[in-house]
Measured scan of single mutants.
Amino acid sequence: MIIKINGKYYKIKKIEKNPNGKYTITTENGKKYEFKNVKIFSEEELK
């Protein structure tokens, strides 16, 4: 799965839903981001 952050695309390693309704997304390079609204892309959609 792929996520778009600030115009760049990252591969997703893990998605966790937090009790506060936000999502914590861990990218393949180990960085964590927290979002309220998340749009996930499949690799097929990006081709």
Rank of each mutant, 00 (worst) to 15 (best):
I2L: 15
L46D: 08
Y23K: 01
N20R: 08
E34C: 09
I25E: 00
S42P: 06
K11Y: 11
K11R: 11
K17N: 05
K4I: 14
E45D: 11
Y23N: 01
K31T: 11
Y9I: 06
I15H: 01
I5P: 00
T24Q: 09
S42M: 10
Y10Q: 08
E34G: 02
K4N: 10
K17Q: 10
K22H: 14
E44C: 05
T27G: 05
K8F: 11
I5H: 05
V38I: 14
S42K: 06
N18H: 10
I40N: 06
E45T: 03
N29T: 12
T27V: 12
K39V: 15
N37Q: 10
I5A: 06
I2Y: 15
P19W: 07
Y33N: 01
V38C: 15
I12E: 00
Y10W: 12
I15A: 04
E16D: 08
T27N: 02
K36W: 13
L46Q: 06
N6I: 04
I40S: 04
I2M: 15
I25L: 05
K36A: 14
Y23I: 06
K4Y: 08
K31L: 10
I40Q: 05
E44Q: 04
N18M: 14
T24E: 09
N6S: 10
I5F: 06
I3W: 03
T26I: 13
Y9F: 11
K14V: 09
V38E: 04
Y9N: 05
P19F: 08
I5V: 13
Y9T: 05
E34A: 05
L46R: 03
N37K: 08
F35I: 15
K14L: 13
I3D: 00
P19I: 13
I15K: 01
S42H: 09
E34N: 05
K14W: 10
I12L: 04
T27R: 01
M1H: 08
T24F: 09
T26M: 07
V38R: 03
E45V: 03
N6G: 13
T26P: 00
K36R: 11
K17L: 14
T24M: 09
N20Y: 07
I25N: 00
I15P: 00
F35R: 11
G7F: 02
T24R: 05
K17D: 02
K32M: 12
I5W: 05
K31N: 11
E45G: 06
E43S: 05
N18Y: 07
N20H: 06
K11T: 08
T26Y: 10
I5N: 01
I40H: 06
I2V: 15
K4M: 13
S42L: 10
K17H: 10
F35L: 15
K36Y: 11
Y23D: 01
Y33W: 13
E44F: 02
K22D: 09
G30L: 02
G21R: 02
E43I: 03
K4V: 15
